[in-house]
Design a protein around this nucleic acid. Structure first.
Length: 301
DNA sequence: TAGCCGTGGCA
DNA sequence: TTGCCAAGGCT
């Protein structure tokens, strides 16, 4: 057990020094992600944010390029059927995001003249855009001052400011207030801090095996100073996957993606042999979600 | 609000 | 091999 005592939380002056150090680190250590290029459109940033929801950034890069070649602006995507978006989503996972991105593009055409809105409230109203994604688009695409609170930033703040290994299971109001305290007044600095603190969490202050030896703010971290105490409280629940309805849905959808002309219901159900009732449940779910459709005797995307 | 919703890489 | 976890959102 750690014996070191947790130092006091950083005040405004120390926060400013930490922000300065992290943004300076970011200037040299940032990954060259294509959607960070100054020339990319808000739409391109938005696509990257949808794809990166719960998906490792490295896996997003290829599909992101292909997506924007095919649909360089919201109107182009909105003009195609949603099933094309689901097919192009490929194996990124959580295919409902493809449906939502298509819905968001449609809404952008309907409500915003085909231009991605800059206002967080208008972004937040789009399908698939929650608190995080709205703030991320506002910040990264428009340089706005927004509280960008993703899993990386939550972990960084939990360690630096709270002295804890992990944040709570779900984002709390207290966490949002804390993140707001960290937000620099100046919009440009705030946007840099948002990107830099996320990158620190992704590259250095990782969930498991954080690289404190190379952390630019190791000297300011309450968790490190306290001897890196282990997480207290209930273990973070992880959902099982093998053998679940989710896996069955994924299997069925994979068949539909590779057979765009359609698949006989019986053949489709047959690709999940383990549990007939579960296969049926998965198909019903896909149909209900609009990820699959009946076309005569066939099931199609 | 807790449970759902895919997929794959890595230790 | 098995478990962990990754730029969340929705109900």
């Amino acid at each position: 057990m750690p014996t070191a005592k947790t130092p006091a939380a950083p005040g405004p002056a120390e926060r400013a020094r930490i922000i300065e150090a992290v943004t300076r680190w970011f200037a040299t250590a940032a990954r060259p992600l294509p959607w960070r290029e100054p020339s990319v459109s808000p739409w391109a940033v938005m696509v990257s944010e949808f794809m990166a929801q719960q998906t490792p950034v490295a896996r997003v890069i290829g599909p992101w390029h292909a997506w924007l070649r095919r649909w360089p602006e919201p109107a182009a995507l909105a003009a195609d059927p949603a099933s094309e978006a689901v097919a192009a989503w490929g194996r990124l996972g959580y295919p409902r995001r493809a449906l939502r991105l298509h819905g968001a593009a449609t809404a952008i055409v309907a409500r915003h003249g085909g231009q991605v809105p800059a206002e967080p409230d208008q972004l937040r109203a789009l399908p698939g855009v929650g608190e995080y994604t709205a703030a991320a688009i506002a910040s990264f695409a428009f340089g706005a001052r927004a509280v960008v609170l993703d899993t990386n930033v939550r972990r960084v703040l939990a360690r630096i400011d709270l002295g804890r290994q992990y944040p709570a299971n779900a984002t709390t109001a207290a966490e949002r207030r804390l993140a707001a305290q960290w937000l620099p007044e100046d919009a440009a600095t705030a946007a840099r801090w948002a990107a830099a603190s996320m990158e620190l969490g992704a590259l250095v202050c990782t969930a498991s095996g954080p690289d404190c030896a190379h952390c630019p703010v190791a000297g300011h971290c309450r968790w490190l100073a306290a001897g890196r105490p282990a997480h207290e409280g209930p273990a973070r629940r992880r959902q099982a996957y093998a053998g679940t309805d989710r896996q069955a849905r994924g299997r069925l959808l994979d068949q539909l993606r590779s057979n765009r002309a359609g698949v006989q219901t019986e053949v489709l159900l047959g690709c999940w042999e383990a549990d007939r009732a579960q296969a049926r449940r998965a198909l019903d779910g896909l149909l209900a979600d609009g990820l699959a459709h009946r076309r005569g005797e066939l099931i199609v995307l």
